[in-house]
């Protein structure tokens, strides 16, 4: 059992978790008459792995889309790094240091793995179009500097051998890994993973779990993930938010959530009177 304090805490395996990185305050998201998310509040602390779980249609992906700026909630506030975030475009959110992967792989199929990962770094590349057109000098220097960072990530995720392969030719599991590489290339403060293990076999899941833990451990990246595989969620995450029908029904460390009666009811179903 972890000891939870207002500013950070220490996990069971001894990692120190920092202060609040992101805070969602009373978020409500509607699509016309449908309430996808109802009055949900939770926080994500620096350096932790935070899972969002729930049955299908619970609003998890909508929540992730709110965090990444793709949806703007009708009510509620999003606080990031101690400041209230005004409504902004998704690319501006990305520039603030939030990167994500997608439930259905959203790689750039026509480009090579290397180009895909390099695209992840575009917020760090500042040369303008005229410098790019000349290439020699600033643009080339910048390209090489960023390539070095990208190569470290390629090494880290063990995808060296497919560097120059067009993404369209890769199998599913590798595509997921390339997508993680692209998100990591941005060196995000907060990394959002939307079902990173979906459709994988046990071995691939183990690989992906290892990468997620390593990312958190080596880069200190804060991670928020959605996942259906309970075994994975309970093993990886420090704290879990449970959603059902757009409402939050549980929040806390895995052990606590596992024994929460509402959560058990949501997953196993309960007889209604």
């Amino acid at each position: 059992m972890t000891v939870q304090k207002e500013e950070g805490y220490v996990t069971a395996d001894g990692r120190k978790i920092g202060g609040t990185l992101m805070e969602m305050k009373n978020i409500t998201l509607r699509f016309g008459g449908v309430k996808a998310i109802t009055d949900i509040s939770f926080d994500i602390k620096e350096g932790e792995i935070r899972a969002i779980i729930g049955p299908n249609g619970a609003g998890k992906s909508s929540m992730l889309n709110v965090i990444s700026g793709f949806y703007v909630p009708q009510e509620g506030e999003v606080w990031f790094r101690g400041a209230k975030r005004p409504p902004m475009k998704p690319y501006e959110v990305a520039q603030q240091g939030i990167a994500r992967t997608f439930q259905n792989i959203a790689l750039f199929e026509g480009m090579s793995v290397l180009d895909n990962v390099m695209t992840g770094r575009l917020n760090n590349m500042k040369t303008n179009m005229f410098q790019q057109a000349i290439w020699k000098g600033k643009a080339e220097k910048e390209e090489v500097e960023n390539r070095e960072v990208v190569e470290k990530i390629i090494d880290f995720l063990e995808i060296q051998s497919i560097r120059k392969t067009p993404v369209a030719r890769l199998p599913y599991g590798l595509k997921k890994r390339v997508e993680l590489a692209r998100a990591l290339a941005a060196e995000p403060k907060l990394l959002l993973l939307d079902e990173p293990m979906a459709g994988m076999n046990v071995e691939e899941k183990e690989d992906m779990s290892r990468f997620i833990l390593d990312v958190n451990d080596e880069f200190g990246t804060t991670i928020a993930l959605i996942e259906h595989d309970m075994g994975v969620v309970m093993d990886l995450s420090d704290r879990v938010v449970v959603m059902d029908y757009g409402k939050k029904i549980g929040d806390g460390p895995p052990d606590e959530v596992r024994n929460n009666q509402d959560v058990i009811d949501a997953y196993l179903g309960v007889a209604h009177d």
Partner: peptide
């Protein structure tokens, strides 16, 4: 290749 993903990445 994928305009929505591009925008979320920062394009």
């Amino acid at each position: 290749d994928m305009d929505i993903a591009a925008e979320i990445i920062g394009v």
